[in-house]
Simulated scan of single mutants.
Amino acid sequence: MMSRADRTPLTDWWWTVDRGLLAGLGALMVAGLVFLMGGGPPVAERIGLPTFYFLNRQALYLAPTILLIVAVSFLSLRQVRRLALGTWLVGVALCVLAGKFGPEIKGAHRWIQFGSFGLQPSEFVKPAFVVVAAWAFSEGAQRRDMPGGFLAVLLLPVTIVPLILQPDFGQTMLITIVWCALFFVAGLHWFWVAGLGAGGLLGVFMAYTFLHHVRERISRFLNRDSGDSFQEFWSRESFRSGSWFGTGPGEGVAKRHLPDAHTDFIFSVTGEEFGVIVCLCLVALF
């Protein structure tokens, strides 16, 4: 047992770390492996890979991931901010390179390829952006000599422009929404909240009007007769088939039709095989 009287880095970490958060992360990792056992095999077999290829790869990457999580949790707040700033700078630079030189996958250039290893820089930009933007807002509120608010505003276009050029509108919307939430928490007046909301609606309208890709997605979701609604149909069908309690592990049918059952549509596969109740518990855990 570790005593509170002991003053070592390990005991300090144990008595100050958010153990509930660590437990939640551990539960999500285990759940991810369980759900991937259902969604991964059909995709692997479809493209000629071993049945549990994606499951084995997920388990393999979990080991260094856990080590990284624990290592970062030992850092001080100053060290976390510095790490986030460095990660954000490198991530944005890689997003620019991906947009210009990355391979085209499903009509977008979002990946950096190192031999057989692929990396999506935006996945590293997201958490780093949250920390850096919050840091800028905080410094602006505490120090009059620090243009934190201006820097926080500048961070948004610098981050999302490379994503728009890839194009990656999903990540762009996510980062923008998170930035608006940080702006609100930092003490934004309700007048500016309304202005940001109106600006967001205007952005969606402009994207719908001038970007064919966005217009097609929205139209197909709202009206299945407006075009190919194959993915939307099977995604809904998976939840309809699973109902509250699911069809049972491995018994799903929709995963054999959905194109990315092991990634983009893993939640649909979970809904069919484990049921809506398990999906709601998963959302609650997040």
Rank of each mutant, 00 (worst) to 15 (best):
T159G: 06
V161M: 14
I164Q: 14
Q166T: 10
D168Y: 09
F169Y: 15
Q171I: 02
T172E: 09
M173R: 10
M173P: 11
I175W: 04
T176S: 10
V178G: 12
V178L: 14
W179N: 07
C180Y: 15
L182K: 09
L182P: 09
F183V: 08
V185N: 09
G187W: 15
H189M: 11
H189K: 08
F191D: 11
W192E: 01
G195Q: 13
G195T: 15
G197H: 02
A198Q: 11
A198R: 12
A198P: 14
G199V: 13
L201Y: 12
L202C: 14
G203W: 01
F205Q: 11
F210Y: 15
H212P: 10
R215H: 13
R217M: 07
I218D: 12
S219H: 13
R220M: 12
R220N: 11
R224L: 07
G227P: 03
S229A: 05
F230D: 08
Q231I: 03
E232L: 05
F233E: 05
W234V: 03
R236G: 02
E237D: 01
S243E: 02
S243I: 00
G246R: 04
G246D: 07
T247F: 00
G248L: 10
G252N: 05
V253R: 01
A254I: 09
R256A: 07
L258Y: 09
L258T: 03
P259K: 07
D260L: 04
D260M: 01
D260E: 05
D264F: 06
S268N: 10
V269G: 06
G271S: 12
E272W: 01
